[in-house]
Each structure stands twice: as C-alpha cells, then as structure tokens.
Design a binder for these strands. Sequence first.
DNA 1: ATGAAAGCGCTAACAC
DNA 2: GTGTTAGCGCTTTCAT
Lengths: 333, 333
Amino acid sequence: MRSGERRITLADVAAEAGVSVACVSIVMRGAPGAGEATRERVLKVAEELGYRPDSRARLLRSGRSRLLGVVFDVRHPFHHDLLTGLYDAAGAAGYQLTLSAVTPRRGERTAVGDLLQDRCEAIVLFGGNMRSAELASIASRLPVVAMMRSARRRDVDVVHNDDALGSHQAVDHLVSLGHRRIAHVDGGTVHGSAERRAGYQEAMRRHGLAEFIRVIPGGAAEEDGARAAERLLVDPPTAVTVFNDLSATGLLDVLRRNGLSVPGDVSVVGYDDTSLSRLAHIDLTTIGQDIDGLAARAIERAVERIEGTPSGPRAVIIPPRLVVRTTTGAPSR
Amino acid sequence: MRSGERRITLADVAAEAGVSVACVSIVMRGAPGAGEATRERVLKVAEELGYRPDSRARLLRSGRSRLLGVVFDVRHPFHHDLLTGLYDAAGAAGYQLTLSAVTPRRGERTAVGDLLQDRCEAIVLFGGNMRSAELASIASRLPVVAMMRSARRRDVDVVHNDDALGSHQAVDHLVSLGHRRIAHVDGGTVHGSAERRAGYQEAMRRHGLAEFIRVIPGGAAEEDGARAAERLLVDPPTAVTVFNDLSATGLLDVLRRNGLSVPGDVSVVGYDDTSLSRLAHIDLTTIGQDIDGLAARAIERAVERIEGTPSGPRAVIIPPRLVVRTTTGAPSR
DNA sequence: ATGAAAGCGCTAACAC
DNA sequence: GTGTTAGCGCTTTCAT
C-alpha cells in the first residue's frame, strides 16, 4: 500500500504553514525576502509533508532548465569514467545533468531527440559518428560541445585529448628505453585514429627514426589488435604503440601465445588507461586522458555558450600523460 | 550565430497554420478529432518551424510523466548491458527512461533524489547498498523495482537472476566433466554472494560431494580472486567456481603464473558473462544472465504498479544459463 | 471538426 | 516581510 496517492504541492505546504505560496516558494529556493521564523516553520512543514519541488513546473515557469544533456554510449568504458567527472563539474557550475544513452539498438539521433524535448540548455556529445552537418543543425538550436571527436564547424565546441601528443609520449618513452624499431597499430576509421597515427609518425621522424616507421591497420576492438599481432609476427619490431587499450590487449595475447615475451621481446603501449589496462595480468603501459580536466573544460564551454560569454578558443585540447606499467622495458635485441 | 533564440511553441505553429492551439495539440499527439487536410497542414508547418513539443509543459498539464527513473552505477559493466535492454522494454511499454548515475563521488541517495524531483512514475534501482528501510521510504512515495539485489519488503518489487541456480549449473557442468574436488570462491558481502555460495553447497551435496565442499572467502574485485588463488595453491582442487568474472580473472592469472594450466590442472567458471569473459585470452566459461528477460520483467513490474494492476508474484527470479568457453575441461588428476 | 478557456505547479513582478 | 497576480507551454473539457 503506497501513500504517494497525490503529490504534495507548494499550495499544500502554504496552507499547512498558514502562509502564501509565494512565500513558500521564496523559502524553498533560499531566496532573500522571508523572515527567519517563517522560514523555519515553512521548512519544517515541508519536511513533515515530504514536499519535493516539481522541477518541471519550476523550470517551465522560470524559462530555464539549468539542465545539460549528455549523450554517451553504454558500450564505451571510457564514457562512464567521463560521466563521473561531468557530474562533478556540472554540479559545481550549478547545472544538472540529464543523460541519454546510445545503445546497440538506440541511435544518436534518438538520444539527442530526447534531450531536445527535455529542453536542456546545451548538449554534450561523447564521440559518436554524427556527421558535421547534422551536428550543425543541432548546434543551430542550442550550444553543442563535442567530446572525443572533432567537428569542422565554428558553432560546435570540441573538447578532447591531444591525440598527437599522446603518441609522442608513447614514442618518447620507448625511445628513451632504447627502442628504435617501433611499430604502430592504428584505429582504422575510429575518431582520433588519424591523429594518433600522425603523432606516431611525427615523433618517429623527430627522433630520426623515419626509416623504422611502420603502421599496421587496426581498429578499436580486441580482434583488431590480435590480427595486427599476427602480421607483426613475421618480423617483430622491438616495440609497438597501439591505438587503444582493448586492441593492445588482443595484441598482447597473440604475441605471448606465439612465444614472444612482453616486455622481453616486445614492449607494448596502449591508450586510454581504461580499467582493463590496470588488471594485474595485463598491467599495460598506456596513455591516460585527463578525465577531470576534460569534464571541467566541457562544462565550462557549455556554460559559457549558454550564458552568452563565449570567450577563449573554440577547441580545447587537453594533454594526456604517460602511465608506465609493466609492458614496456629495454629492448633485448 | 545560432538561431535558437526563442523556442517554437504550439501557439507559433497555430498562428502560422491559421488554426487554434488546441487543434495543433490534437494533431501533434495524433489524437482523434482533426480533419485530414488540417492535420497535414499543421504537421508541415510544425516541421518547417522546427517545432518540438516541450515535454515539461506537456507532462505538467497531463499530470503524468510516463517517465521511468533508472539508477545505475557507472562502474559496473553489467549495468550498461542492462540499460540497453531497459530502453527497449520501456519504449515498447510507452515509457521514457530518465537516467541517474551513481559515481564514485555521487551516491545513491543523490541519484534517487534527482529522479524524484523529475517526477518519474517509478524507479528502477540497479544493485546498490541502500538499506531496506530506506528503500521502503522511497517505495512509500512511488513504485520501486530493485534489480540485482534482494529486498525484504512487500512494497518493493525485485527482479533478479537466480543465483542459486547459476551455481548449480556451474557445479553440474564441472561434475559432468568428471570433477569432484570443486572449490568455490565467494563474493564476500556483495549482494548475491550468499545465494551463489549456498547454491554451490547445495549442488555439491546433491551430487554426493559434500565432503569436497570448500569455500574460499573472496569478493567482487580482481584482487579478491588473486588472493583466493594464492590460498588455493597449497592444495589445488581440480575445479573452481568463482563469484564473478572479474574475480575469476584475477584467480586465473595467479594460477597460471604459478605454473598451473587452465583447464589442464584446474577448471574455472565465472559468473555474469561480462565482456571481460569474452576476451580471447580469457575466454572464460561463465554463467550468463538473461539481460533482455530481466529488463522486460522489471519494466513489466514497474508499469503494473503504476497502472494499478499489481498481479503476479512480487519477486521475479530469472534463470541464468551456462556459457561454456575454454577454461573448463576434464580433470587430469 | 474546430476554438475558447481553464489550469497543471511553480516563479517573478509588484503591491501591501 | 508577505501576499497578490499573472503567466510559462501545454492538455483538456466544453461549446460552437
């Protein structure tokens, strides 16, 4: 038998406390203009009645929702880490988050649509494959911040990790260990792959290792890394930088199954510092993205656009950092 | 320059189409009571103007939100799989989902609070450590469906996997392979651990293997499995059933590092069929939960409570299924 | 088949 | 310091 037969409204609290609804509204919002005695009594009555403000009505009336929509993909572990940071940053800025998930059976289009209907004031998009034109049509309605992807539009803010720099860090680390024959397994057509690949190539050239540049086509999945490892087996380099941790895991597995020791024969560096890379038996050296930094800057951009003070650069690129674990060491050959 | 200066309302569409707002409302909802010609014209104008109904206003007026709140934990991979199923089930029942995440810095209390304020009509809770009494106080306000946990309350529906049966399936599988000395690494104080442990013990007794019952204290994390493996090393059984996949992964790692082959020397069975267990180099035999079944039943329970037709049992227990991979085989000893 | 009008629960002017 | 009033954008009788 549940008691939630009728929701308690401001009017109920007002009647019970013997004041007007406006007065209760003031008290509930903590706005100035109410006596201490009244304030206390109203709060007490609200508490007793189990009153909860109706955010819909409130937002409808005030014209603002102070709501930030977030589109994330349930399949991507990194998105979940980022959500954590985003909640903190949004809360600090006085905004609430409203989440809309992309699932194998629920596209970005749908996810964004729901958010628009919720009248959030800006949308933060995690990755995704939405085309620039589509992004632009959303951006024409409300501020859009795209994370972990690029967007060739002046009206879309982008906040992401510096992929090229991450690749530089990986290569620098391996070179400092004494490696020269360093290969790269890329991410295929996934967002960020081109930048990471170019970063690898540039870093190799910077170290005078242009002749050792070797890019193996890969992808974002474990199998992609496994396939790449098989191609590498013929003539193994002493080190490999891989597009992401998952692919690196697949590569590690195939390498070891074929009798190569890591890091004895081959050193491996992943990307993203996902929980997978931290597992004891994987313990992968990787490039970690600054999650809280990314989150804070994304919220900052969104709020600036909402509140009409668009300052600073349109694109925010955050430097990643190297996380050394046990899959890298000095070359034995 | 974005054009979303002002939101387009029903009135705008009505004015543009030369009809009343009520008429537009009818058309937009697809309600009966509008001529075909009018309907088409209104739809065309709405499209041109880029009109989007304001869900807040709509719900405020109609008194219903048709919104189901979901509390999930960003850290739990299984929760994400379940979200996918839940979106489908909710959509089919004519409800929308509103997500509220639990993060390392955002508790269940906060997550539920936001949902209450959003005036959703029921709450679906994934796991969590909320106490029964607290759950009850929420349930006194609106229907609550708890998933992947139990609740000793008549007013809280629970929908979860049959943990005891899962353990039976694991033991049956191992016994059919010829194992007798089968140990169990439990989940400590985590929800479901007691049931899985009891199921293991009962299955062992059922097979006349009571004398081989051996329970090692564990937990939900990888390290818990690793620690348990170290204790097992002294006198290894021929098979182990583990509380979950993550713990099983830690156990596998320690076993192999100590020269034991899997499944040659020891067979291992996990629980949950998470993406981790599917990784090529882990390829763990495990117990899979019926995600779509769980999701469908949870939505069903929630909707029944909302619409006032509470029929059927309060608790829904769904049978899991064995997923055989490569960590189990016939015993060599 | 369509329109006028009331009001969902709340906030924001303004008056008292 | 507190109450009155007028809506926010929409749905929903009830007339027409």
